[in-house]
């Protein structure tokens, strides 16, 4: 018996491999471009590099699209693994079944963020008549490429180390003790969350990209704790059901995909202006309004479940 025979896992790894191969091809070209690129040259070699540039762009854009689909697919596959892992009732059990799971998930989100930043820089690069950001975008891609290779290794390590005989802990155990940083209580965290949310919006309004960057990173972690320990319980309508994964399941109308989706997309638009600025020294602060938009939807969605519960039952959990 092996997890590698689960059909969704076979598909997942196969597609990851296809993407990896395409990226290896890109990286070979990228290294050549980084080495020999000279925009002012008029020889046929330079022109051929210019043409290869478009191949790499195409492959990376394709990679991004597929990686986003695969990320969702990955989370879904974790659910598929639950029947095979003793004790696991939802993705919590599977992802926490070995030390690679949680870092891998965070790492994947980070790679998606970087790919998104790459995409924006690429757009700006193609919009300039001299391809001024070309080298920087390819240095960035080289970093992403290395990260993607490590990601593939981590995935293999994670899947091979999923225990199929020893029982694992699931959400009912993992999140039962309030494992909050700095000895904060759940209510503290919720207040901090709302405060950070308002600060972020103010900072966005004044287009302070570096402050928004820091606030968004803080917000991402605080939002994680608030959703897991507070808002989640209102989604489940059970005070003791604390889990960041269960509401991804059909029983809760897949609402988790929206909750986490709005948060991640929002945070992405919050941190990318600063990243873009630090890479290509160009102000691209207009993304901040998407940050405000998505974070507001996220906050509204979370608050909605609390209010709904209060209206229906007249009390808080």
């Amino acid at each position: 018996m092996s997890v590698f025979l689960l059909d969704s896992l076979v598909v997942f790894l196969f597609i990851e491999l296809v993407i990896l191969i395409l990226n290896v091809i890109s990286e070979v070209i990228v290294l050549r471009i980084l080495r020999y690129w000279d925009f002012d040259a008029s020889n046929s070699f330079q022109y051929s590099l210019e043409r290869q540039n478009y191949l790499v762009n195409t492959i990376i854009s394709f990679t991004i699209a597929v990686k986003i689909i695969l990320f969702i697919f990955f989370v879904k596959s974790l659910d598929d693994l639950t029947p095979l892992v003793p004790g696991a009732m939802c993705a919590t059990g599977v992802i926490g079944s070995n030390i690679y799971g949680n870092p891998l998930l965070l790492y994947k989100i980070f790679i998606l963020f970087l790919l998104g930043v790459w995409m924006i820089i690429n757009k700006l690069d193609l919009a300039s008549k001299k391809l001024i950001f070309l080298k920087k975008k390819y240095y960035l891609f080289t970093v992403i490429f290395i990260m993607i290779c490590i990601e593939f290794g981590l995935e293999i390590l994670f899947f091979t180390n999923i225990p199929l005989t020893t029982p694992v802990f699931c959400c009912s155990v993992v999140f039962v003790v309030e494992n909050l940083p700095f000895d904060l209580t759940t209510i503290d965290i919720v207040y901090i969350f709302y405060a950070l949310f308002i600060l972020t919006i103010v900072s966005n309004y004044y287009k302070k990209i570096s402050i928004s960057f820091i606030l968004n990173i803080l917000l991402m972690f605080v939002a994680y704790y608030s959703v897991t320990y507070y808002f989640g319980t209102y989604v489940y309508e059970e005070p003791n059901h604390k889990c960041p994964f269960c509401f991804l399941q059909k029983d809760y109308n897949y609402v988790g995909y929206f909750i986490w989706g709005f948060l991640f997309v929002g945070v992405f638009f919050g941190i990318s202006p600063y990243l873009i600025y630090s890479i290509i020294e160009k102000n691209y602060e207009r993304l901040l309004k998407y940050n405000t938009l998505f974070l507001s939807i996220f906050t509204a969605l979370c608050s909605f479940f609390v209010i709904k519960y209060y209206i229906e039952n007249g009390v808080f959990l």
């Binding site: 092996s2 590698f4 025979l5 689960l6 059909d7 896992l9 598909v11 196969f14 095979l84």
Partner: peptide
């Protein structure tokens, strides 16, 4: 699951 998996491979 394993029937499906072997088939997929």
């Amino acid at each position: 699951y394993y029937k499906g998996g072997i088939f997929m491979i």
